[in-house]
């Protein structure tokens, strides 16, 4: 009984630590619904901390290629997401017509992009710190970095 209790304590402690780490940056949420025959419906919840961690396992040459392609935009993205974290929640862009509604805003430290269209709905929620981490890692992987 004593051994069982110790094991339970150890396992649950490890679970708590792993859970706390996995969710300490929040969750990335992707929802895509295409309203057509055979249209895809993607609903994805991923712990945000997993993304920069997973990038460590991506082969170096793939990261280098990606960084090379995004070379021109990386400094802009880095400056943008670094600064965005400092500002209060805000709606940065809203485009609305009789059919479409696009919103780009920040909400509780996350970048939120919502596209509502008669043909599809796309909702993306990603912590700003995660995007900043990913951009930072790509910058470090760029040739000559």
């Amino acid at each position: 009984m004593m051994l069982l209790a110790k094991a339970a304590l150890g396992v649950s402690g490890a679970l708590v630590a792993a859970g706390a780490y996995a969710f300490h940056e929040g969750v990335i949420r992707v929802d895509v619904d295409e309203f057509r025959a055979g249209g895809s419906h993607v609903h994805l919840w991923v712990p945000a901390a997993m993304v920069p961690m997973t990038m460590h396992f991506v082969p170096k040459h793939h990261l280098c290629d990606a960084a090379n392609h995004a070379r021109e935009f990386l400094p802009i993205a880095h400056a943008l997401f670094k600064e965005l974290k400092k500002f209060p929640d805000a709606e940065f862009v809203e485009v609305k017509d009789d059919e479409q509604h696009v919103q780009i805003r920040t909400h509780e430290g996350k970048l939120q992009i919502d596209v509502d269209d008669p043909g599809e709905k796309v909702h993306l929620l990603v912590p700003l710190s995660t995007v900043d981490d990913v951009v930072g890692q790509l910058e470090d992987s760029a040739p000559g970095a």
Partner: peptide, 21 residues
């Protein structure tokens, strides 16, 4: 049709990001 575009940008953000472009 009520088409609307709204853009709100903090000046400080623009000041920091613009030199990176």
């Amino acid at each position: 049709r009520g088409d609307t575009v709204r853009v709100n940008v903090p000046l400080e953000l623009a000041e920091k990001v613009l030199p990176a472009v």
